[in-house]
Design a protein around this nucleic acid. Structure first.
Lengths: 137, 137
DNA sequence: TTTAAACTCTACTAATTTTATAGAATTTAT
DNA sequence: ATAAATTCTATAAAATTAGTAGAGTTTAAA
């Protein structure tokens, strides 16, 4: 399941993607439009900025805008940024690999192979969902 | 990501599936073989029993055994029993459907449609992984 | 019929993660 | 100078997860 953060991030990105290219959106504007607690959204937008998905303009008349194209931002990206690994266990993860502490021999682990298959399938599906594809139904 | 419970459940099921059909396995035996804390495993086996995946025999010489065929127990089943919905949001879930509290109109929600696609793909993949398929690499 | 070995059940606890909130600092247009 | 905005760090409350404790029940076998 997605965390609230990831869900709010997607909603914020969907909002930004639907504004005109020149428009910068204030946090409060996004929070109101997408029903997100403003202070919580501040953190989320900073995370999205550090992930290079959005840019910001400081000071009066400042705000946020999409940095990447809405065709390039995928569900997989946002999941990884806020909720971490796509895989069901760290040992089956591409970007968040970690050995299982209770695993005696990874190469013969019956679980791992199956979970790698799942990760491949899920990742492919999640990479197929972009902000743009979500907007166009 | 899978919870420890779900992971332990899968490891326990894998162990049971590799025993002879007549054999009943004690909790301690499974715990030792699969490196699972015994008291924690007790709860997990009870959950598996309530889910009709394993049966038990009480008293001395008691223990657990597979109730369903190892071909019938899928990763999706175990995920749902221990970790709940396969879908990324409850509003996209088949078995754990729930409306989003912050959602004004579900039918026009841009997120939901995409997440239903992901759930369909992920579910299909997870239903393809069975205890038997895990054992046969 | 007693005993030991096992499952069953409920409650509890500690640690971690999630979901925020608070407030001061900084930046920038007017 | 001022007001409106982002930025940053710390804190806190709630929920979830992972695991422990211990009493109760069942059953095989001596």
């Amino acid at each position: 399941m997605l965390s609230q953060k990831a869900k709010y991030a997607l909603k914020a990105l969907l909002y930004l993607a639907q504004q005109e290219d020149t428009h910068v959106s204030r946090t409060l504007e996004i929070a109101d439009a997408a029903s997100i607690p403003k202070k919580f959204l501040e953190q989320i937008l900073l995370d999205l900025k550090r992930g290079h998905f959005v840019g910001s303009k400081q000071g009066k008349l400042g705000g946020y805008y999409l940095l990447k194209s809405k065709n390039e931002i995928t569900l997989a990206d946002i999941h990884r940024l806020f909720d971490g690994a796509i895989a069901l266990l760290p040992c089956a993860s591409l970007n968040f690999y970690e050995r299982c502490s209770d695993c005696t021999d990874e190469s013969t682990c019956a679980l791992r192979h199956g979970l790698i298959v799942i990760r491949e399938e899920t990742l492919k599906a999640m990479q197929g969902i972009t902000i743009a594809s979500l907007i166009h139904r």
